[in-house]
Design a protein around this nucleic acid. Sequence first.
DNA 1: TACATAAGACGAAACGTTTCGGCCTGCTTC
DNA 2: GAAGCAGGCCGAAACGTTTCGTCTTATGTA
Lengths: 361, 361
Amino acid sequence: MGRTTSLKLIAEMAGVSTTTVHDALYGRGRVNAATQARVRAIAKELNYRPNTVARALRLKRSGMLGVVTGNLFTPLFQRMLPQIEKIAHERGYHVFYASSNSDGKREREVIELLRGSGMEGLLLFSIAPRDNLDHHTAILRELPMVLIEQPSAAMRSFDFVGTDNVAGAFAATSALLTAGCRHIAFYLPLVVHSEDWWVRDRLEGCAKAAKAAGRSLAVLASPTADPEVMQRYSALPLTAYLSAGHPLDGLVAANDELAFQAIDELRSKGLRIPGDVAAVGCDDMDASRTFSPPLSSMRQPMERIAEVAMQLLIRRVAGDQSPPEQHLFPPELIVRPSSTTPSPADSPSRGRRKPEMVRSK
Amino acid sequence: MGRTTSLKLIAEMAGVSTTTVHDALYGRGRVNAATQARVRAIAKELNYRPNTVARALRLKRSGMLGVVTGNLFTPLFQRMLPQIEKIAHERGYHVFYASSNSDGKREREVIELLRGSGMEGLLLFSIAPRDNLDHHTAILRELPMVLIEQPSAAMRSFDFVGTDNVAGAFAATSALLTAGCRHIAFYLPLVVHSEDWWVRDRLEGCAKAAKAAGRSLAVLASPTADPEVMQRYSALPLTAYLSAGHPLDGLVAANDELAFQAIDELRSKGLRIPGDVAAVGCDDMDASRTFSPPLSSMRQPMERIAEVAMQLLIRRVAGDQSPPEQHLFPPELIVRPSSTTPSPADSPSRGRRKPEMVRSK
DNA sequence: TACATAAGACGAAACGTTTCGGCCTGCTTC
DNA sequence: GAAGCAGGCCGAAACGTTTCGTCTTATGTA
């Protein structure tokens, strides 16, 4: 409808130059008090708001940070939100979120838009960053960017902050061993993509702990798992494994969802959880608390991750050019009934369990 | 570091004008095929990306929509996300989200930033819009905006899409009455702000249904509720009400959280739910499914709301100037065990319950 | 009187993109 | 051989803000 209220419009109405209007509104140069008052009155009257686009174009500073995530409603991301907002707010930044819907192409588009929208820095919570490695590298030349939860090995040239899945799985397995488990298995997903570094990391931690205790580790999966998975990890179907008479008293699942599934399978074989088998999951989903039995799980310190990532990002935005940093934080073992010490028959050393931390509720 | 790659830079390298570069890249004017190829090669080489800020400044068209919400992780908002993303994607828009942390001042700031960032339209999911009514009205003159879940009465000058809480409460209460309840109460929150229009709407629907059936409606609250609340609604503490010997066989709570609380209080008085009292909540929280007993609840059709709101917003963005529209959708009654017909002693007509819709899981 | 100083205001350029209109050149057409 | 046309390219302005340097005028000082 009417002309948008710009500095120019105000200048015309006040009979001064845009420079003077600008100075008057922002108290920059030397402006006569009367002039300033007049200009401000007109600005208020016209409900003037600065055009951030123009400002960003000129200034290359917008006070805005962008967060790109594959999925806005994934629980892990949810847990980061309060910290992200809090730190941004403290430092005077506003945060804008965009979802890539876990689509590499869309992720690139969204990043381009954010970059072009005057964002000063990007937090990238992408599940499959390798698809876009070249793109990200190119972006990084122009825009600070911190990655969240990435596979460390491939990402040495980026800042990233994430969970130490190896250490987490190691701790979970060690806890089971300490509690008296002697025959431990790792439970795989149905399918494993090349991007599922977390599966490998968790398996690795598990295997390390078993080895350190002089125990072997079985790698199991659902009977419905992709044959390729079975082959790649030399895994066996859980039910077949038990039918063959192999003992099993401890299980670490690649995530909570899988733990639920594994527990179902164990039960179908007549095993009690807890009692016969102690089970631990990963990710500490909400449902794990209310599962029957409540499921022990490795919980990623997303709050801490968000905090460190934001601080790092803001440092970068402020101009810090030091080499890329990788921060890995160990997850926390949440002990619930599912991993209660196996029955005395199987485990003579019960009661000696020493969890890293216990968390109620 | 290096100069940002702009059309101008490419133009210099290619030895042509920026106009030609632009035409070459976007296939606009008439450009010699050889020139075009050369320009494109250089652009690719330099990893050129258009600057959205500049483009938006020039074009006033950015393909971006903004969503402002008080809280990004509120379940109601969560349920809207997939639809928002889906429709935006279908129509070729990208969506950016920002949180106001339920702070009126921050909400205004965020809106200003989004407005200035070239967003073409805004979806506003604000709990307390009245604080910012003037501001929103001013914004609306320059930027299409659709409100979600607002009190209809005060918002006639805005587009909005929301839940018909009156109808919902009416339906819930009617269902209880049809099922044989004869003494129904509405359960209030501990505190009621002037913005809590939903409390009033839900109470109104409840009262209407009771009246239509020739029944009176008790208004109750927790003993710990703010005295001002009790007074404003002529409410009584639930426990006191029962102690005084008043009969009660049906209860509608202002939301699920309150239903949990009310059920606790009823039980502390020795009443069984279900059995003695049939209870219904509002909002259909996740926890309501797993509550004991699983809680019946009014579920807002957030998916539909998101869909209609986005379609309306995109219509506005496209230039539709028709008068503001208000869309109210009735919630869906999810029947679970908590509202099972009261015991035969109280209700001779059991079995005649006719729920609007039953939803498993 | 001449000069320095400060207040108050402004012109113009820049950020990067898009677009309108125009300028050449070479070719076709009558 | 002149008019017309199309192909190929470009200049310049515009979006709204910020900033540098400059210009004018009034005041104070030598």
